[in-house]
Amino acid sequence: MPEKPSTMPPVFRFAPSPNGYLHLGHALSALLNDDMAKTARGRLLLRIEDIDITRCRPEYEQAIHEDLRWLGIDYERPVRRQSEHTDAYRAALERLKAMDLVYPAFMSRGEVKRFVADQEASGKPWPRDPDGALLYPPDDRKLSRAEAEARIADGDQHVWRLDMAKALATANSELSFIETGPAHAGTLTLDPAIWGDVMLWRWDAPSSYHLSVVVDDALQGVTHVVRGLDLFAATPVHRLLQTLLGLPAPIYHHHRLIVGEDGRKLSKSQGDTALTALRAAGLSPLDIRRRLGLG
Score class of each variant (00 low, 15 high):
residue 254 H to F: 05
residue 47 R to A: 03
residue 101 L to S: 11
residue 72 G to T: 01
residue 270 Q to H: 14
residue 53 I to H: 13
residue 6 S to R: 06
residue 109 R to Q: 09
residue 12 F to C: 04
residue 199 M to K: 14
residue 237 V to I: 15
residue 83 S to P: 07
residue 203 W to N: 15
residue 47 R to D: 00
residue 16 P to A: 01
residue 154 D to Y: 02
residue 66 E to H: 08
residue 101 L to P: 11
residue 209 Y to S: 10
residue 85 H to P: 02
residue 131 D to W: 10
residue 161 R to F: 04
residue 276 T to G: 13
residue 130 P to W: 10
residue 92 A to Y: 11
residue 212 S to A: 15
residue 42 G to A: 06
residue 197 D to E: 01
residue 20 G to C: 10
residue 53 I to C: 08
residue 253 H to Y: 12
residue 89 Y to S: 01
residue 224 H to V: 12
residue 238 H to W: 03
residue 81 R to G: 04
residue 283 L to G: 00
residue 91 A to K: 10
residue 239 R to V: 12
residue 291 R to L: 11
residue 145 R to S: 14
residue 221 G to M: 12
residue 14 F to A: 02
residue 241 L to E: 07
residue 40 A to Q: 12
residue 127 P to D: 14
residue 65 H to Y: 15
residue 129 D to C: 09
residue 87 D to Y: 04
residue 177 F to A: 10
residue 1 M to H: 13
residue 241 L to I: 13
residue 275 L to D: 01
residue 106 F to T: 06
residue 147 E to Q: 14
residue 223 T to F: 02
residue 287 D to M: 13
residue 161 R to V: 15
residue 16 P to H: 00
residue 249 A to G: 00
residue 280 A to N: 08
residue 254 H to M: 12
residue 170 T to V: 07
residue 156 D to K: 12
residue 45 L to N: 01
residue 276 T to R: 15
residue 130 P to T: 03
residue 141 R to V: 00
residue 235 T to K: 06
residue 70 W to A: 11
residue 4 K to G: 06
residue 106 F to P: 12
residue 36 M to L: 13
residue 121 A to I: 08
residue 243 T to V: 06
residue 193 A to N: 01
residue 113 K to T: 05
residue 94 E to C: 07
residue 252 Y to C: 07
residue 293 G to D: 13
residue 161 R to M: 04
residue 37 A to Y: 03
residue 125 P to Y: 09
residue 223 T to W: 03
residue 107 M to I: 06
residue 110 G to T: 09
residue 271 G to W: 09
residue 4 K to R: 14
residue 187 T to E: 07
residue 86 T to F: 14
residue 231 L to V: 11
residue 293 G to E: 11
residue 103 Y to C: 05
residue 187 T to Q: 05
residue 157 Q to N: 12
residue 46 L to W: 08
residue 89 Y to F: 14
residue 226 V to W: 13
residue 294 L to R: 03
residue 39 T to Q: 04
residue 71 L to F: 04
residue 241 L to M: 07
residue 81 R to D: 01
residue 141 R to M: 10
residue 129 D to E: 12
residue 171 A to N: 06
residue 153 A to G: 05
residue 6 S to G: 04
residue 10 P to Y: 11
